[in-house]
């Protein structure tokens, strides 16, 4: 009898441990983050404008702003973020291993990363693409006018292939000079060894403004490749993915509706039902996502809307004076479009 009872007790205990263990494994990321009290955000520490460290050791930049926004959604506190600076080699494993909750580090959304690598991308926050930097006095309007020109670029990236494809398609001859890094590319370009430099537009822009006299160069609006960048989360956690997705959409919707850091308090009293729902004055949109009903208002208060974040880090209020281009709202001819908050 006692033996049987012991067996029963042991098996009950075993099952209990299994259930507990399983439940701790399958606990959603949102609950994990809430319980932990701090968001782990994977970032880059050396991309000017997107993710970098200030002299006092604080993380700043466009990508970093989304970490702060997500922390505002979950905790209403943009400082509750532990930034994990990652190299491009580490970033995906860090996400798979659960070391970080979200990867906000200039990562291009591609099919293989979404599929084989096992990430879930959320929303594109920045439409990058390969661009071309030329000297202003060349007076060139489009990339196709650069037939027979010499291009400087960085070796070992897809940029080489993209520019070759671009001109092969048009059956036009051109020359290519490749360099180990952006420094080599720019010094050759400066010394007139090539007519144009080609790389991701964001890289070229940062480099242009590092030059002694940036205004003699012009970065063409045209792009020859697609590089949509945005935050990624671990696979198969739709609740957590929703939180990140609607954080970004909230910032986009706020810009579209004209809600800014400055006029937030006034906007809360606005009679427009769309704005009321967005800011959580009416409705239960936030609750449905498992976060504070006022989460968009909190993001705007702490970080600002999408346009404000863009202007502060990359646009006219920054060193880079980047125009919105594809990153303008759809109402302004860009690609930024948030589904309705209702």
């Amino acid at each position: 009898m006692t033996k049987n009872r012991l067996k029963l007790a042991a098996s009950t205990l075993f099952t209990l441990v299994l259930i507990l263990g399983a439940s701790s494994v399958f606990a959603g990321k949102l609950d994990t983050v809430k319980r932990r009290g701090i968001l782990h955000c994977g970032v880059n520490k050396m991309i000017p404008g997107f993710g970098f460290l200030t002299p006092s050791g604080q993380f700043e930049g466009f990508d970093v702003a989304f970490c702060k926004a997500i922390a505002s959604t979950v905790f209403n506190d943009p400082t509750k973020v532990k930034y994990v600076p990652l190299s491009s080699a580490q970033r995906f494993t860090a996400l798979q291993a659960g070391e970080i909750d979200v990867l906000s580090r200039n990562t291009t959304w591609t099919a293989s990363r979404d599929g084989a690598v096992g990430l879930d991308f959320t929303v594109t926050t920045f439409y990058d693409g390969q661009g071309v930097l030329v000297k202003k006095d060349l007076g060139i309007q489009g990339i196709s006018e650069l037939a027979g020109a010499t291009f400087c670029t960085i070796s070992g990236t897809t940029t080489e292939k993209n520019i070759t494809d671009y001109f092969a398609k048009r059956n036009v001859k051109f020359k290519l000079l490749t360099f180990e890094d952006a420094d080599g590319m720019m010094s050759a370009f400066r010394a007139n060894r090539c007519d144009a430099a080609t790389s991701d537009r964001s890289t070229l822009l940062a480099r242009q403004y590092a030059e002694k006299n940036p205004s003699i160069y012009v970065l063409m609006d045209q792009t020859i490749s697609k590089e949509p960048l945005g935050p990624a989360v671990g696979s198969n956690d739709s609740q957590w993915r929703d939180v990140v997705v609607w954080t970004v959409y909230g910032m986009l919707a706020a810009e579209e509706l004209g809600v800014t850091q400055k006029n937030l308090e006034a906007m809360k009293k606005n009679k427009d039902p769309v704005i009321q729902r967005l800011l959580g004055v009416t409705g239960t949109l936030g609750k449905g996502l498992g976060v504070d009903n006022h989460f968009v208002a909190n993001i705007i208060k702490n970080v600002g809307n999408y346009g404000e974040v863009f202007e502060r880090n990359l646009g006219m209020k920054s060193k880079f004076k980047m125009s919105r281009g594809l990153n303008a709202l759809w109402t302004d001819g860009g690609l930024m479009y948030a589904p309705p908050f209702r």
Binding site: K45, M46, P48, F52, A182, D183, Y209, K319, F320
Partner: peptide, 13 residues
């Protein structure tokens, strides 16, 4: 830290 310093907008390159 050195790598981070050259990533700051004011000190690129």
């Amino acid at each position: 830290a050195a790598k981070a310093a050259i990533g700051q907008p004011n000190f690129i390159g």
